[in-house]
Write a protein that binds this DNA or RNA. Structure first.
Length: 189
DNA sequence: AGCACGATCTGA
DNA sequence: CAGATCGTGCTA
């Protein structure tokens, strides 16, 4: 019930990525409310991170990452998918956390309709969860602290023992040190 | 102005 | 394992 405030996002990206595990992602579409518990995240750490979109400076696409923390950075890729990121760190430091998977909690039927799938197939991938939650480019730049369309809430505390860190997915083009950095976080099953 | 390619998913 | 499918950013 407690919505996460700006201070939650305004700190070290790796800490935010870890702390997001177990939190509830809530999406309101009209009268429907969809939610899920975050179980997988990836940290993208600013201009020095060669896997981060902000690596080569500010552009129209990644501008949101350079703004205030606690906003949604949604972008389109592969010609057909949207991916959801949450902006972290202080304003001007372009960092974000990619939400890769959630465990559906509420509005599951809505998600099934959107995805035309059921069960685990619903939200176990960054593009799938965007489809299930109806997240597209119109939510790019959305403030996550006003509780209107998209926000986060406290839910469960995940013990450190249940958190695994691995290298990130789909960033083969990045420098070795960034390709291998253990900046992907998952809840052990 | 043109072009190569991507923080993915699906279905054969 | 290839195809879908298009915006973005780099090169010229």
């Amino acid at each position: 019930m407690t919505m996460l405030n700006r201070n939650f996002y305004a700190r070290d990206t790796l800490q935010v990525a870890r702390a997001l595990l177990g939190k509830k992602l809530v999406r309101r579409i009209g009268s429907a409310e969809l939610s899920g518990m975050i179980v997988e995240t990836e940290a993208y750490c600013g201009e020095s991170d060669s896997a981060c979109h902000a690596h080569r400076g500010k552009t129209p696409r990644n501008a949101v990452m350079f703004g205030q923390p606690g906003h949604a950075y949604v972008y389109f890729t592969y010609g057909l998918h949207y991916l959801l990121n949450l902006v972290a760190e202080e304003e001007g430091n372009p960092c974000a956390v990619l939400i890769r998977a959630v465990l559906p909690l509420a509005g599951i039927e809505e998600m099934e309709v959107r995805r035309k799938k059921k069960g685990a197939e619903l939200t176990n991938g960054p593009a799938k969860l965007c489809q299930a939650f109806g997240i597209d480019k119109s939510l790019n730049g959305c403030d996550l602290t006003c509780g209107k369309e998209l926000w986060l809430e406290d839910h469960k505390t995940i013990p450190a023992k249940l958190i695994t860190a691995t290298s990130r997915i789909g960033i083969d083009y990045a420098k070795k040190e960034h390709r291998e950095a253990p900046w992907r976080f998952l809840v052990k099953i």
